[in-house]
Design a protein around this nucleic acid. Structure first.
Lengths: 117, 117
DNA sequence: CATATACTTCAATATAGATTGAATTATATA
DNA sequence: TATATAATTCAATCTATATTGAAGTATATG
């Protein structure tokens, strides 16, 4: 997948405020479902839905509890976070900027000529 | 404005694929409206709308042409980009992660106790 | 001043996807 | 095995906002 596509997916997934809120909590460490519910006030099934999207994007992972497998613990995928940082820094890199002249007049003129013939 | 709010706004604004596409082009330098239209295939009024949102978020700025003031040239706000980079690196900083124990069992037990009394 | 060009604004519609409540699945425990 | 708990899935609805076409504004030019 090209890097623009990855950036696009990232922004799309984290563009939702509730999803971002959940991800932000997970960035501070492992949390169980009930903690996420307590801290956000979101319905449990809604949390479940958003975590699934975050997981599908590779940003988050989950493991079942070892003492009680009904509980599920969520955390960020640290490898993915690293690559996200790299990608995003490249995306916002001011070095991408080129000192250019917009070609506005030429492209319009061309159109005009074509129409006038 | 707190930094989470800024991150939230950023992701919301760039969460739209067309807006991201426009911003991505502007990251490579100044462009006129017609170039943006050529490169994206988007309707001119739609471009105008999205640029306005990008501008309201402080990400993009525009100036009218000096030879012909009908033309408008768009570019990214470099100062803003710098602060965005800083904020976003802080947001994704793995150092935020704390090695903690989810408190799932306690919080449920507490609820149960309260209900049983 | 009238017409053309570049762009924006407005109002209406379309659409993706967020949210909700109910049903379902997985695990644990009496 | 029956019941309770934790979480997910499903189907239906709601909502924000993207998109479209038409009208409006600003600037330029004959």
């Amino acid at each position: 997948m090209d890097s623009f596509q990855e950036i696009k997916d990232l922004f799309h997934v984290l563009g939702n405020p509730n999803r971002l809120k959940l991800f932000n909590i997970l960035m501070t460490g492992v949390h169980c479902n009930c903690e996420l519910s307590d801290q956000t006030g979101m319905a449990i099934n809604l949390i479940s839905h958003h975590l699934k999207v975050l997981q599908a994007a590779g940003l988050v992972k989950s493991i079942r509890g070892d003492t009680d497998a009904r509980w599920i613990y969520y955390s960020v995928n640290e490898e993915k976070i690293k690559s996200v940082q790299t990608e995003i820094n490249a995306f916002f890199d001011p070095e991408r900027m080129i000192d250019r002249e917009p070609i506005c007049p030429p492209c319009k003129t061309k159109t005009k000529e074509t129409n006038n013939e």
